[in-house]
Computed example of a mutant assay.
Amino acid sequence: MKREIIVGSRKSKLALTQTGHVISALQAKFPDVTFKIHEIVTKGDRILDVTLSKVGGKGLFVSEVEQALVDKKIDFAVHSMKDVPSELQEGLTIGAIPKRESPYDCVVFAEKTNLDELPQGAVIGTSSLRRASMLKRYRADFQIKSIRGNIDTRLKKLYAEDFDAILLAEAGLSRMGWLSDETLRRQTLDATTCLPAVGQGALAIECRNDDAEVLAMLSEIHDTETAFCVRAERAFLKTLNGGCEIPIAGFAQKEADGGLVFTGFVGSVDGLTRLDVQTSGDTPETIGIEAANILLKQGAKELIDALRSL
């Protein structure tokens, strides 16, 4: 490949770090290719004074990036998979899904080191309705306070504002190289306590579906096992027509025999209502769709419609 490759990325420190990791992996395999990052500000980056659920719409962190792909201003884009809507713009495809980082959520504390050590009425920061629902189910006394901004901004707010703790994706801390920071008081939450978001910990590398050169290049960093799991999770999300305004989670794990076990949930923000499901099988899309249909029969559509009406 001889042409210069323009890579689209959000301007946040984490997004640029993730994009840098992808470029490094590709550069090792294609040393003669020149890569250049094109920074893009998305709607989700511009509107920081309200929760994501109130901003509304899908693709808050990807729509402008996708448009740059359609307009051929960039050749591919690096997204956090959990930000990517289940429906892509026409003419675009996910060209590669690299190996997944930790899919789990992580609590970072101002002073304590465990959720159970927090006092009654502790204030926990998150802009995710999924995380809020999980926390309220774990302990109804927790006070959930919205917190927006890049990962480094949220960490600064933890210490500067009235928070006992905040929730972050552990993958982001890992990619930033902060998990080795011994001063960071943190606790990884297992899937039983806080079920991960669809695609959490995975990256999506999106490109035009007719760009054979880029597709061939991206295939070199594609991880089939990660993609196998993410396919089930995204099929679940698509069938439920989920988005950031709904407390929804879906997490697939590959078994030793090659099959998948999928766990999903839809709940209320206060944690009082929660619909849970677990399915297993060999075909990712079938497993995800089956799980979604089980929840729909349990009343998930009515719950989702009620949440959207708010």
Rank of each mutant, 00 (worst) to 15 (best):
A216H: 06
D162F: 00
H38S: 14
Q143S: 05
T153Q: 10
R154N: 02
S127M: 05
H21Y: 14
G299D: 11
V78G: 12
E170K: 10
A191D: 09
A122V: 02
G243P: 10
A235F: 06
D162N: 14
G201S: 02
L88N: 04
A216S: 11
E302V: 00
D75V: 01
T239C: 02
I294M: 15
G201L: 03
V107M: 15
G59D: 13
R3W: 08
M217G: 02
L218S: 11
P85T: 13
A216I: 00
L155F: 09
H222N: 14
F262M: 07
E233V: 05
A77H: 04
L203P: 02
R154P: 02
E285N: 04
S219W: 00
S86N: 08
G201T: 01
N293K: 15
L167A: 15
S268M: 01
R10C: 05
I40N: 11
S86E: 09
G267F: 02
I97L: 13
V214R: 08
D223Q: 07
I6Y: 12
S128Q: 08
E182A: 14
G299H: 04
H222I: 05
T34D: 01
T126W: 01
V214F: 01
A191I: 09
E64R: 09
V198W: 01
R46P: 10
S128E: 09
S280Q: 12
S12R: 03
L215C: 04
K11P: 09
E302M: 08
E302I: 05
I74G: 06
V33K: 04
S128W: 10
P284A: 04
L295T: 09
T263P: 00
F236E: 08
V41E: 15
R139I: 09
Y104G: 12
I151D: 03
K2I: 04
R131A: 00
D190V: 06
L88C: 02
S24N: 06
L60H: 06
A160P: 01
A256N: 12
F142G: 09
K36V: 14
L60A: 11
A160C: 05
G258V: 07
L272N: 15
E87A: 12
H21G: 08
L307F: 03
T51Y: 02
C244A: 14
L296S: 10
T19C: 06
E87Q: 13
E66S: 15
L158D: 13
R46F: 11
L260Q: 01
M217C: 06
I124S: 11
Q18R: 06
L272K: 13
S146K: 01
V7N: 04
V41P: 03
V22F: 10
V84W: 07
A191E: 07
A171Y: 00
D276V: 06
A122M: 06
G259D: 05
V230A: 12
